[in-house]
């Protein structure tokens, strides 16, 4: 393996030989990919292929067993402010006693740091973000009283408030109405025009080629990554969705069994 000098323009996200295990069992094998800037990139693959796991381990939410992730040529810990994250909607308790505005304000906490309270500037930013997603009228509502699509919009507004260069989104289109879906994709395109990079976990193959500039096809390992017209082909789709590699799964089981 040759060691290359850091290129002058490091890619927004570079994933190098990333292997991630869940409960000692490898679920992602040697993912090695670097994402280009200013694109909407779809991550597709069957259920259990490790799509969310990939996003989570890029965000440092799941520890990598081997390999590393760099954000603009630096480890994530130093570049957190450049990366925004939109988790799955089910990951939070929607009965929580906060308003829509409170949730969006949370996007500014990273920049505020410990102990400082959000002030007028943050409030204005957050109102602006809410307007962008068409939720300005709901700012003072408690989050429990929102529909699925509205909740997704709130999460997006929070991500906007982070004002990041890169956004990682975990299934933003699941369970939202058609109007929200259209609004979200419009928003993603706006962000892309501002030369931001968007990584979106997606599972609807119907809309995928229309939404994404590039695609990463995943099934425990990287099947293909490239511009949509090159990789969104029947043979590669079959390779991605055509069941697990039996030997790979079996090896994962054995590895887990020996380590436990």
């Amino acid at each position: 393996m040759s060691t290359t000098a850091v290129p002058p323009n490091p890619p927004p996200i570079e994933v190098h030989d990333l292997t991630v295990s869940y409960d000692k069992k490898p679920v992602l094998w040697n993912i090695d990919v670097s994402f280009p800037e200013g694109q909407i990139i779809g991550i597709i693959g069957p259920n259990g292929a490790g799509k969310s796991t990939l996003i989570k381990s890029i965000m440092g939410l799941m520890p990598a067993e081997s390999g590393w992730v760099k954000v603009y040529g630096q480890p994530l810990a130093r570049q957190r402010r450049l990366v925004g994250y939109v988790p799955q909607r089910e990951s939070v308790d929607w009965d929580f006693p906060v308003t829509v505005r409170d949730v969006v304000l949370m996007g500014t906490y990273g920049k505020l740091g410990l102990f400082r309270r959000p002030g007028k500037a943050e409030r204005e930013l957050c109102d602006h973000c809410l307007m962008q997603v068409g939720m300005a009228a709901f700012a003072d509502r408690q989050i429990a009283n929102l529909s699925g699509g509205q909740r997704q919009r709130v999460f997006l507004a929070r991500a906007l408030a982070q004002d990041s260069r890169i956004y990682l989104m975990d299934e933003p289109f699941v369970g939202v109405d058609a109007a929200t879906e259209a609004a979200i994709i419009e928003l993603l395109r706006t962000l892309k025009r501002q030369n931001r990079t968007l990584l979106v976990v997606h599972h609807d193959l119907q809309t995928a080629p229309e939404y994404f500039d590039s695609m990463l096809m995943l099934n425990m390992r990287l099947v293909a990554f490239g511009p949509t017209q090159e990789v969104f082909t029947t043979p590669l789709l079959q390779k991605t969705y055509g069941g697990r590699l039996t030997i790979l799964s079996e090896a994962a089981e054995q590895v887990a069994g020996t380590r436990r």
């Binding site: 292997t19 094998w29 040697n30 090695d32 030997i247 590895v255 380590r259």
Partner: peptide
């Protein structure tokens, strides 16, 4: 079968071989 580049396989193989 997994589709890794030739120069990327060594680190993983080094570890897994003991467990198969």
């Amino acid at each position: 079968h997994v589709g890794l580049a030739v120069d990327h396989v060594h680190p993983t193989a080094e570890e897994i071989e003991h467990l198969l």
